[in-house]
Design a binder for these strands. Structure first.
Ligand SMILES: [Mn+2]
Ligand SMILES: [Mn+2]
Ligand SMILES: [Mn+2]
Ligand SMILES: [Mn+2]
Lengths: 219, 219
DNA sequence: ATATTTTGTTAGTACAATCTAACTTGTTAG
DNA sequence: CTAACAAGTTAGATTGTACTAACAAAATAT
C-alpha cells in the first residue's frame, strides 16, 4: 500500500526531522532532488494516508504511524548495509546505493533472516542505530569530535552524515569505527584538530571532517 | 532505461518463447495477470525500443537484444535464488517471491559478488540453468520423467515449472535434486508411475508430477 | 461456408508521479 | 515599514502503466 516512491519521501522526512522535529517542503525537495510542487502534493497525499501532519505554509511533521513506517524502512536499509559489509565483504563506502534499493523489498522473512544471520546487530557499518522491529530507534549520546577539547581521548563511534566521499577519505587515513583518538591541538583559526591514533604520525582533521565524526569520550 | 515493469514483460516473453520460439499477447496477459490491451501497447513500446518483433495479429518474438536483456534478468533471478538457498538457508520453495523482487536491483557489483561467493554456479535451486554474464544460457538435454520407461534408472536434475505447491509436495516425498529414481511400473490408465529411491517404500507419482520432473538417465 | 468464439487492436479513461508557469504567503534586508 | 526575495501553493501538462468498452481479425465449431 505504500509505494517505493512514498517510502523514499517518508524516509527523507524522518531523517530531516530527526533532530529538529520538523522539516520544510524545500528541504525535502533538495534532499530528494524533486521540485517543490511535487513534494507539496505528495505531502498532502501522505497526510491523507495518515503518515504526515500537513497544514498549509507550516513545517511538516510525521505522525506516529509515519515515524514507525519510516523507521521500519530505515531498519531494512541499515540491516542491509550491515549484511553487505559483514556477510558479503563489501566496504563501508560501497553499500549505500545497494541498500537504497533493497530497503524497498517486501519480505519480512528476508530481513528477519538477515537480522538472525548477523546476530541481531544494533548499529550499521557507519555507526547509525538500527531501529527494532517495532520501529523504535535507540539514540546514543555521542558527541561530535569538533566539540572536544585538547587532551581528550575518545573512541570513534559513528560517521554522520556518511557520504561516499567522506568514507573514502577516512579509508585513506585508516580511520575506522572503534579507533581511539587523542586530541593534541586545536587550531583556533579554522578549528582543525590534530589527533593521533594507532601506530602512525599525528593527523590533522579539518572541521568539515570533525563535524561528521561522532565519538564517545573514554571515561 | 528499462523499467521494472518492462523487465517483467521481457522475462515473461522469454520464458513463454523458450520452447516454441514465439508467444501470444493472450499468453503474456494470462502469465502476468494484465489485460490484453495493456500487453498489446507494451509490446508496441518494447518493439519501439528494439526488444520485441511486433506485427499486428502475429505472434510475438524477442529480438536478439531482447533475448539478452531478458536472460540477464533471469540470471539475476536465479543467482538470487541460489544465494538465498546456499548462503541464507532458505528452502527451495521459499525463494521465488524474494528473487522476483531482487532481480530488479541495479547493481552489477552486487550480483558479481553473489556469483563469486557462490563459486559461479551454473544452475539454480530448481535445476534451471543460470545464463552467463552475456546472457547466454546453456541448455541441458534432460528428459521429463513421464517419457521414461519401466526399468529406467534416472537422476532428478530439475523441476520445471517449479511452483511453490509442487516443491512443497516434493518435500513431503523427500524428493530432491540429485535423487536417483528407479521406475518400477507405469499405470496405463492415468500414466502414474511407481518409483523407488533412497531407503523408503515405493512411491506413486501422478502424471501431473512426472510432467514437471526433468531427469538424466544413468548411462 | 457460415456462425460463434477467441484473440488482438483501438479508443478513451484513470491514477501515480513528475514537471513548468504563475500566483500567494512568509521572511528578510534596507 | 516596505520592497525584494524565498518558500509554498495552485493549475495545467506530461509520461508510464493500468483499465473498460467497442470493434476487427483469426480460429473453431457446426
Ligand atoms: Mn530508497
Ligand atoms: Mn549507514
Ligand atoms: Mn520481477
Ligand atoms: Mn528457480
Amino acid at each position: 500500500m505504500i509505494s517505493q516512491t512514498e517510502e523514499n519521501y517518508l524516509k527523507a522526512l524522518y531523517n530531516l526531522t530527526y533532530l529538529k522535529g520538523e522539516a520544510t517542503v524545500n528541504e525535502i525537495s533538495k534532499r530528494l532532488d524533486i521540485k517543490m510542487p511535487t513534494v507539496n502534493s505528495m505531502m498532502k497525499k501522505l497526510s491523507e494516508k495518515g503518515f504526515v501532519h500537513y497544514e498549509s505554509y507550516k513545517p511538516l511533521k510525521l505522525t506516529e504511524e509515519g515515524k514507525k513506517e519510516a523507521a521500519l524502512i530505515i531498519r531494512k536499509h541499515r540491516l542491509t548495509e550491515m549484511y553487505l559489509v559483514e556477510k558479503m565483504d563489501f566496504a563501508w563506502d560501497e553499500v549505500h546505493q545497494i541498500a537504497e534499493q533493497i530497503e524497498h523489498i517486501h519480505s519480512p522473512e528476508f530481513f528477519t533472516k538477515m537480522d538472525q544471520l548477523l546476530g541481531y546487530p544494533t548499529v550499521d557499518p557507519h555507526g547509525s542505530p538500527i531501529p527494532d522491529h517495532n520501529g523504535v530507534m535507540r539514540s546514543e549520546n555521542y558527541i561530535f569530535l569538533d566539540t572536544c577539547e585538547i587532551g581528550d581521548v575518545v573512541t570513534l563511534m559513528a560517521v554522520q552524515p556518511s557520504s561516499k566521499e567522506l568514507l573514502q577519505y577516512l579509508n585513506t587515513k585508516n580511520l575506522e569505527l572503534g579507533t581511539t583518538l587523542t586530541i593534541h591541538s586545536i587550531e583556533p583559526f579554522d578549528r582543525s584538530i590534530t589527533v593521533s591514533y594507532g601506530n602512525r604520525p599525528a593527523e590533522v582533521l579539518s572541521s568539515k571532517v570533525t563535524a561528521t565524526l561522532l565519538v564517545r569520550p573514554i571515561s
